[in-house]
Amino acid sequence: MSVSRELLVNLFYTMAKTAATRIPVDVYDTLRKAREAEDNPLARAQLDAILKDIEIACRTSRPICQDTGTPYLFIELGDEFPLRSGVIEAAAEGIRRATREGYLRPNAVDPVYARNSGDNTGRYVPWVHVDLVPGDKLHVHLLMKGGGSEAPTTLVMSTPLKGWENLKKAVVEAIARAGPLPCPPLVVGVAVAAGGDMAVSLAKRALLRPIGVRNEDPRLAKFEEELLDALNKLGVGPHGFGGRTSVLDVKFDYAHRHPATFAIGIVTNCWAVRRVEAEVTSSGEARILSKHLLPEEGGGCRPGVPSIEG
């Protein structure tokens, strides 16, 4: 067996459909815990509506949220994997198919000619990030990133001496200022790097790490927890109705910086985290790796790994 275009189109179609309709299990479990811990009635009503929405979406294969996002692809491409640009072409085709079948809202708008492309692809869309790695595998994350939760996106070009101080201030202020707009409870990505584009890009990629999975570096693991606790004291709460849970998690990443710069990037994801992780070997075995809430026979939902649809 080898890697065919058809296999990849089917994989990306399944990933897009899964992202839109089936919440990752780590997100679902965290939202349920937040609901159990919540004693503010308005915040609880919001979390109840969110959980109900997730379960309806799962059972009926409807989008969790009507803003099905902009597609971001984070690819690790093995040296011996047989396809290169074909991967991206297949991803675009899988996304177009998921759009045609009503799993994705057409969200790609040409800003110059004021036209919606109608199929979620267009100039630089899907947005692709590729890392070249040893080995024979294609490893890919699809993140369908909602527009509303771009609101708090922040770039601070700090002086290095004030770097960490400015970072702490900027994170708290970004989440406080955005209030209900980005659909909290949020996942927050924070990064430090040399250039502004690097910091924001790393912060976005940090959103891929599942909730509850801490940074590998113990210092940063502790820092993530400090920021998480601090942000949950803000009182923004689910959709701005107060309560205990303003953010579901905080993820930190960094690149080596320039001696003269300390770029801080802050990015958020709404509660409706649409991310799917998959892997393809050079011999053409494709599988989804991430766990999602899947429909069960008899009408319920259960956690599981989606199989690839033809």
Binding site: A49, I50, D53, I54, I56, T60, P63, G148, P180
Partner: peptide
């Protein structure tokens, strides 16, 4: 009035 942001399937129902 606020409808729960993101709850698109609940609304469609």
């Amino acid at each position: 009035a606020v409808f729960t942001g993101g709850a698109g399937a609940l609304a469609a129902n």
